[in-house]
Design a protein around this nucleic acid. Structure first.
Ligand SMILES: [Mn+2]
Ligand SMILES: [Mn+2]
Ligand SMILES: [Mn+2]
Ligand SMILES: [Mn+2]
Lengths: 219, 219
DNA sequence: CTACATTGTTAGATTATTCTAACAAAATTG
DNA sequence: CAATTTTGTTAGAATAATCTAACAATGTAG
């Protein structure tokens, strides 16, 4: 059974993996906030459990088992976040840190019960998909708001970043998942976008913000 | 901040402590299921945090800080058990193992929210008191069913043992907290007691069972 | 293609938690 | 009280997770 530390490494590996499931040691060290020698020794440990393939001086490669293991931890994380928001009244900006701990609890029934109580949600409070019990993830291809054009109407569907600071920025503007935005104009100079949505007749969103907002085009 | 291991030792120390807050190394080793040298080294560590007083060849003594720290972990454990039963539909026999893990989560708001949602309960699903936020415990002096006499009517209020096996034994007889029991007779030979309660006109309970059932005398 | 920067590895050490073996102190018991 | 049992300690080792310092391989930019 994976230790909490190993579980956190697996999650990072999963999130950093490219299309060939490769991850560089330096990226992983940065993500985990540990030194490269620490990662070097940990990947050797993870290899013993067949969660990844390690060869000197090459990026490590997550195995299918490693991916599944990681996805199941991410499942617990996202179910927890959704439970905290939907059933316990937390704000979407408060749940990540708690889920970071709860995800390591070994009690299948606990998470199954959450899942049932919520009616088997498919996304977490930040719009990220919840892997199923087999560790499969349904990928949805949203558009970034920064790639939209003036005149389009879109619905805010997910975020590419869920830091507390960003979530509080969105709270301050009453922006939440499901909000319908009408794109009024786009400034050629700095790529900022002016949007209209319920109770907000004109909000300007910087490119930095727009690129983190994933949307579905309505019309 | 206490590690999970330290927190588990503190809980055991709290539960084993006598009226002078003393605990023997051997008892603690048995409770924690580790060797005595392991306990010996851990108590030296706990002493550094001023959670207990250690002197060679003497029983260790929990300090007030140690007691408080322990009580606050027990608070999280019992709040969790109650939440699992009252808000998530678990049986009282399923919750201890989950709470054993959840009690180590560092997220005051998480437990405060549970507390609020349940209306600030004072006992857990097994009748044990929930320490308050200051780590104070209200002790209730229940009577053991084994000390009751024929003719008395009592209400099942708590258990001195909450093992899954015992809880399943009670489930099998529809015995739960709050059940009103009329004591029909007590066998002098083996101290077994015959009781009557809703839908059960005559159940015989062995002394082994009776001594684990804590009751309030109704009349 | 060399020089420099970046990336990755090894070696060696530290802290936490645990163990077994050996020994020492304290308690019990005849 | 002396012998034995129980309880507690020390020493020494193992594993997990981490670090810094030193060095080696790889990649990049003239
Ligand atoms: Mn999260
Ligand atoms: Mn985590
Ligand atoms: Mn319990
Ligand atoms: Mn525990």
């Amino acid at each position: 059974m994976a230790s909490q530390t190993e579980e956190n490494y697996l999650k990072s590996l999963f999130n950093l993996a490219n299309d060939k499931n490769e991850v560089n040691i330096s990226e992983l060290a940065a993500q985990m906030q540990v030194s490269m020698p620490t990662v070097n020794s940990m990947v050797k440990t993870l290899q013993k459990n067949d969660w990844l393939i390690y060869e000197k001086y090459k990026p490590v490669i997550l195995t299918p088992q490693g991916k599944k293991e990681a996805a199941l931890i991410i499942r617990k994380h996202r179910l927890t976040e959704m439970f905290l928001v939907n059933k316990m009244g937390f704000g979407w900006e408060e749940v990540h840190e708690i889920a970071e701990q709860v995800e390591h609890i070994h009690a299948p029934k606990f998470f199954e019960r959450m899942d049932e109580m919520m009616g088997f949600p498919t996304i977490d409070p930040h719009g990220s998909p919840i892997p199923d019990k087999q560790g499969r993830i349904q990928e949805i291809n949203y558009l970034s708001l920064s790639d939209c054009k003036a005149g389009q109407t879109v619905i805010l569907a997910a975020l590419t970043n869920s830091s507390t600071e960003f979530l509080e920025f969105l709270n301050g503007r009453n922006l939440s998942l499901g909000t319908e935005l009408k794109i009024r104009s786009k400034e050629a100079y700095d790529q900022s976008i002016v949007v209209t949505y319920p109770d907000h007749s004109s909000e300007t969103l910087s490119e930095k913000v727009c690129e983190k907002l994933l949307v579905k085009v309505v019309e």
